[in-house]
Amino acid sequence: MPPKVDREKCDGCKAEKESLCEQVCPGDLMHLGEDQKAFCRMPRDCWDCMSCIKACPKGALETRIPYQLGYHVARLIPMMGTNTITWTCIDLNGKVERYQYRNRGSDD
């Protein structure tokens, strides 16, 4: 399912030649509309790899499970740090889990 775009937060990466989600999508699916907000041009074709979510500097994108496969609504939000990633997962029942670990380099 394509990422849900928060149109308030998305600024189309004004400072960039091309918005970061457009740059990074392995399926060439993210695109800016005439209003300079991101959208997924072919919802069925998203692989849910979450590359665009990780790349978005505004936190404006969120992957949602297609309703055909899951229930409304759960959330999974990655925060990219320096050599770490933090994930927040909120399940259908509102239960929150947090994961933080190193994604580059070693602890020693």
């Binding site: 499970i65 759960a74 959330r75 999974l76 990633i85 997962c89 259908l92 994961y99 670990y101």
Partner: peptide, 23 residues
């Protein structure tokens, strides 16, 4: 189970979201 979900986040993060979407 939490360790397992952490592993899954490294490879197929949206699967963790899928499990969450089914509670």
């Amino acid at each position: 189970a939490k360790d397992l979900r952490e592993d899954l986040l490294n490879e197929r993060p949206s699967f963790v979201l899928f499990l969450a979407s089914r509670g």
